[in-house]
Design a binder for these strands. Structure first.
Lengths: 132, 132
DNA sequence: TGGATATACAACCGTATGGTTGTACGTTAG
DNA sequence: CTAACGTACAACCATACGGTTGTATATCCA
């Protein structure tokens, strides 16, 4: 499917990444293949499901760009792709940053700085979770 | 459902977190509610789907612990929960760390340190992506 | 060459998901 | 008090998902 080389992630690509990570077996496959290159059969032997099922999981991970399949004779060596993982990390970092900015605004409000909330609503509940 | 207060995340909890994040609308809700507390109706007005659909999305996010619903009169104020986001970040950090350790082992091998790969396979493809 | 191995892929099945509409209930405003 | 509002929830539908089995194709080994 896609080539997963773009720097800006489309909604669809992010969907696939997180969806792929939303399954324990697939997360385990990612973990394993980040540490060692391993064939699909060797992977399949590790789980209590059919070979085809594991094949599908690998396929989902590959579509998300989380692993690469490297043909080697009749085998396919599966290797985790840390670049895509970093993309996901970046996404979460951005959310974290959004939250940090909100807290900064609230702090500015509490400090009396009248520039924190241009909308001019009344000061909200001052239960600032400083370091939860 | 769960209380999302545990420090160690169960597979099920991680499943829910990533699945909740695997939808563009839900990611947008997380972004918005990290920045401002907002009612479900106000959220619903922002998307081209029924109120009930948005309600379901919020419910999925709440089950994952990504947002909290704060009853205020007849309204429900939705607020993003950065703690759960941090849990997901931690997960991805661990994967990243796994990969880093593998690279370290390969580097040790290339440096002649005979302690890098106890299995003793031949040196793998030396295309070490040092800082991609 | 022939047989075993590794993978690919299609078809099928039960269940989950994302959406809809409709109904019910508590809360606020007039 | 009544009407409008905000929410909850059930029922339903189409499609996607995770699993199975079966079949086909390519590669290795003896």
């Amino acid at each position: 499917m896609g080539d997963h080389t773009s720097l800006s992630l489309s909604d669809d690509e992010v969907d696939r990444i997180f969806r792929a990570l939303a399954d324990a077996t697939r997360r385990d496959i990612v973990r394993r293949t980040l540490t060692e290159e391993i064939t699909v059969s060797a992977l399949a032997a590790a789980y209590q499901m059919s070979f085809a099922a594991v094949q599908k999981h690998v396929s989902v991970l590959e579509s998300a760009g989380l692993v690469n399949k490297n043909p080697q004779g009749r085998e396919r060596l599966v290797r985790g792709n840390p670049d895509t993982l970093r993309k996901a990390q970046l996404l979460l970092d951005q959310y974290e940053e959004l939250w940090r900015r909100r807290i900064d605004r609230l702090d500015a409000l509490l400090a009396g700085d009248p520039n924190g909330d241009p909308a001019g609503g009344p000061p909200e509940d001052p239960a600032t979770p400083g370091s939860p």
